[in-house]
């Protein structure tokens, strides 16, 4: 993105990333821009290529069809790890050395990152407390539950105060309590770091993300802030209901004759009307109520949920 000679870069930009496993094309020109200080939800079905994208960002996988990735303005090259000092990574199912204690594992991670040993020690205490593992310092990781491993994983990822935290499906394998803890942790760290996390759990996205991108067919099919995405599609439908069937039938007949361009769906007690002209259609609907002297018991704009959009995309 060049603007008047100034290169503006998000904390992570991916441009035209293409990769195939054998004959299977997983990524076909994926582009993504993650701005600083956001919690970015990376949506997609299982097998859509979310993990592949993340591994490419970390330089762990060589994109077979090329593409450019930069993290904090530094180009990512396969096999090189210089850009990784900005990144904390939580793998989808983090695996640790079971014979180690959590703080020993943190010390190993810190030493590999080249951090000062005292700094590692104090950060480890802070982080293990943050993720609720402070009381387990004498236990071996072998005995940890899945949720505990996931939390140790996030503590490990945050050790060197990364500017970008990448979490691969951090909540998918957890029970409701573990999920809530994980989401709370992500919300707790958003003031310190940008978070990119992949998921197919839409409720999690609605809860913590301010931006999303959806990956489908190897490309980003939509991307932006949650509000933008909602408003882009908002107000193409209205849901109405009446107190009795007489009013309802009267209304349906009137719609059929006076608003012929409307698609009508009866959904239980409610009637959903879809207009092609968005809010202008809503205004015509209100005018119709006035002419008919009808007062609906329900009048609601149908805001498309992430779920309806997700289902629409994957068909």
């Amino acid at each position: 993105m060049t603007q008047k000679g100034v290169i503006l870069l998000g904390i992570l930009t991916i441009d035209d990333l293409t990769h195939s496993f054998g004959k299977k094309k997983v990524l076909q020109g994926l582009s993504l821009d993650v701005p600083e200080r956001s919690v970015f939800g990376f949506l997609g079905q299982n097998g859509a290529g979310k993990t592949t994208t993340m591994k490419a960002v970390l330089g762990l996988l060589k994109p077979s069809g090329g593409g450019a990735i930069s993290v904090c303005g530094e180009a990512v090259r396969y096999g090189e790890v210089t850009a990784n000092r900005h990144i904390g990574y939580l793998p989808d199912v983090p695996e640790f050395y079971g014979y180690m204690r959590p703080q020993e594992y943190m010390a190993l991670c810190g030493a590999v990152s080249g951090m000062d040993a005292n700094r590692v020690k104090s950060r480890t205490e802070e982080l293990l407390a943050l993720v609720g593992l402070a009381g387990t310092t004498n236990e071996r990781i072998r005995g940890f539950s899945r949720g505990m491993r996931q939390r140790l994983g996030i503590a490990q990822a945050l050790l060197n105060e990364p500017r970008l935290l990448i979490c691969d499906e951090p909540t998918s394998a957890l029970d409701p309590a573990g999920r809530k803890e994980m989401l709370d942790t992500m919300l707790a760290v958003r003031s310190q770091t940008t978070v990119l996390f992949s998921t197919h759990i839409l409720a999690d996205v609605e809860r913590v993300c301010d931006r999303v991108a959806m990956l489908h067919g190897g490309k980003t099919v939509f991307s932006g802030t949650l509000n933008e995405i909602r408003s882009r599609r908002a107000a193409d439908g209205y849901s109405v209901a009446f107190t009795n069937d007489g009013e309802r039938d009267y209304f349906l007949n009137a719609v059929a004759t006076q608003l012929p361009d409307v698609r009508v769906t009866v959904d239980g007690g409610a009637i959903v009307l879809n207009f092609t002209d968005g809010r202008a259609g809503g205004a015509r609907l209100i005018a119709l109520f006035a002419r008919l002297n009808l007062v609906p018991s329900l009048f609601e704009e149908c805001v498309p949920t992430l779920e309806t959009m997700f289902m629409e995309v994957i068909g």
């Binding site: 762990l60 990784n84 000092r85 793998p91 199912v93 050395y97 590999v112 080249g114 990822a157």
Partner: peptide
Amino acid sequence: GKGTLIPLLARGLSR
């Protein structure tokens, strides 16, 4: 196979 190296490689351990 287990993926135990991934977090370490991701933080700069050279292969």
